[in-house]
Design a protein around this nucleic acid. Structure first.
Lengths: 177, 177
DNA sequence: TAGAGCATGTAATATGTTACATGATTCC
DNA sequence: GGAATCATGTAACATATTACATGCTCTA
């Protein structure tokens, strides 16, 4: 029933939600506030999808909720992880760690067709790309060493962008000569 | 009409098909033979999706086909790129090259929750992951320097896995002490 | 003669996003 | 008084994959 050998990404989104609920019980809105914060989050998970996964996981018995109201605020569904959910979490986690990621890179195809453009244009397009990469890197680089070391996924991205920048710089150099 | 600012991946799949058709006119089966060959291909594009994109692009006037039959073989639809398709190709290409890729990495979330397992188990899971990475790297590394330099997307992947292995090795070391 | 390959495609399913709906509260 | 925030969710759409359907030919 929890055998997500293929649907790695769906499993991973569940893993993320379970992992967050494991430290604190939370309601959907609270989770989504965390998930909104692009930077520092390992993967993308949008609001409506998060709500759906929460109800799915509750139907599967991985989490439960109780309703809570503070003042006249809208009623919240405060979710917490069950024993079954904790087991699922550990299994997802083991699979996730032992998996060799084969990411979907966007913007790789173009690399094979650069000969179709003049090398001047290619260089300026690649430089545009490099600038965007630099911005992303700097945002991650601005975070403290502490945060990066405690959130390994951030360090992972930090390292990824560093490498990406190095590689692209090399390619631009090669293309210019 | 061809403004795929958001749907980058769909654009990229079209870019790939257009780029292939640009060098030789081809029929769907032939294209799919190329697309089947995981290794060395920048992105994944499955058969049924490829056929669909071909008919879509023909409806948009980017490509056209004529039917061809050799002997008693099934009729082939041989596609070639139109003038409009060539323009679209160049626009897709420019966008693609100047784009900063923000890939969806699978298997990153687990990195943030490793503390939930014993460090012995984490190390052995990470080593399992490292072995899988090594296999992928070696497959790419076995290709000749020539092929890698002429297919930049392959060199890109080659470099990616190299970096991935270095990083993971560092993390395992850190975890062991 | 059975199974693999050639060639095209549809249907069903999975997954995820955007936009929309609701209604109260707080802040300016 | 109007916009932004709180809180949850549904509906419609976009995208892509798996499995299925068809029917011929070549090879073992």
């Amino acid at each position: 029933m929890y055998d997500y050998v293929k649907g790695d990404i769906k499993m991973e989104k569940r893993l993320l939600l379970l992992g967050l609920l494991r430290s604190h019980e939370m309601h959907g809105y609270q989770l989504n506030e965390i998930l909104k914060n692009e930077l520092g989050l390992p993967i993308k998970l949008k609001k409506s999808n998060a709500y759906k996964l929460l109800t799915d996981m509750e139907n599967e018995g991985l989490i439960i909720h109780h309703e809570k109201q503070e003042g006249n605020r809208p009623v919240r569904r405060v979710y917490s992880i069950t024993k079954k959910g904790e087991e699922a979490f550990l299994n997802f986690l083991r699979k996730n760690i032992a998996t060799c990621p084969s990411p979907q890179f966007p913007a790789v195809v173009g690399l094979d067709f650069m000969f179709a453009l003049s090398s001047d244009e290619v260089v300026s397009l690649l430089q545009e790309r490099l600038e965007l990469l630099n911005k992303k890197f700097q945002a991650l680089d601005a975070l403290s060493e502490d945060i990066r070391q405690s959130h390994l996924s951030i360090e992972y991205h930090h390292n990824y962008y560093k490498n990406e920048i190095q590689w692209l710089t090399k390619i631009i150099d090669r293309y210019q000569s």
